[in-house]
């Protein structure tokens, strides 16, 4: 008897208004205005250094972990400002999870403990049976359960790269966030693992709002509903959001010339 891996859940939207992102005195991203729709996959594309990763990291306040880095502007999760004076970044990150470029399971923990990490590390008291159910659900949700159910006690580092990345996705979803941010989640993986991750992303949007940074144009067109194009005018200049629209429109008939140049491969 398998639980339904993905029961549709109403996720939350993100709205950024006049968002400027700084590293010290350097303005890295300027004036972003965007609404990220709930239960959709939004891809962020653009050339290297255009600020798309910086923008992604600002959405769950990971940006400010770099010494000197800060954000100026407003980011709403539904209608709550995550940069409000009384907002706790730790709380923000509990609701907006993140998956990183390279798989990074905790090396000291088993597969089971990795998935349960978000709950255990916060020293929450949870019944063993509940925890088992949560871990199983998260692993099923990451299409990993059948591959690891017999070795949950083994170290997470023992898995293949693609499995490790899905383990990291399970770890991020086990804490039931509203939004999942993914920073080039497949760039360190082989093509088959990449497709597995893309399929997974399509399934995950039933429950989560997903924002994914990618360098891979095919990936953006395959896996996303909406696409946001970032660009930069030159080195030392800040990155900016050029346009955001449905993926179909961005790839077939973008409003801006520079977007067309980029998606048709004329530069970048």
């Amino acid at each position: 008897m398998t639980a339904p891996a993905h029961t549709p859940v109403q996720a939350k939207s993100i709205t950024a208004t006049d968002l400027d992102l700084y590293y010290g005195s350097f303005l890295a991203v300027k004036g972003v205005n965007i609404t990220i729709e709930p239960n959709k996959v939004t891809a962020l594309i653009g050339s290297s250094g255009c600020g798309k990763s910086t923008f992604l990291r600002s959405l769950n306040r990971m940006h400010e972990l770099v010494p000197g880095a800060y954000a100026d502007g407003e980011v709403l999760l539904d209608d709550v400002d995550i940069y409000a004076a009384d907002a706790d970044p730790v709380q923000v990150r509990r609701q907006i999870g993140m998956v990183f470029q390279a798989p990074n399971p905790f090396p000291t923990m088993s597969i089971y403990d990795n998935v349960a990490a978000g709950l255990k590390l916060n020293s929450r008291k949870i019944k063993k049976s509940d925890l088992d159910a949560i871990v199983e659900r998260a692993l099923r949700g990451a299409n990993l359960w059948d591959e690891v159910k017999d070795r949950l006690g083994k170290p997470g580092m023992g898995l293949s790269g693609g499995q490790q990345q899905r383990l990291c996705i399970a770890r991020a979803t086990a804490v039931e966030p509203d939004v999942l941010l993914m920073d080039e989640p497949a760039s360190a993986l082989d093509p088959i693992s990449t497709l597995a991750i893309e399929d997974l992303i399509t399934e995950l949007k039933k429950e989560y709002t997903i924002v994914i940074v990618t360098h891979n144009m095919q990936q953006a067109s395959r896996a996303s509903d909406n696409t946001a194009f970032f660009n930069i005018e030159g080195t030392g200049k800040p990155g900016r959001l050029v346009e955001v629209d449905t993926t179909e429109k961005i790839f077939s008939n973008p409003t801006h010339k520079e977007t067309e140049d980029y998606v048709s491969g004329r530069f970048g």
Binding site: N60, M62, L65, V90, Q91, V92, R93, R94, Q95, G97, M98, F100, A102, N104, P105, F106, P107, A117, G118, L121, N122, C168, R171, A172, V175, L181
Partner: peptide
Amino acid sequence: NSLREASYALGVS
């Protein structure tokens, strides 16, 4: 550093 970030991203203090 990626381990620290993974933990922060889970909402761990």
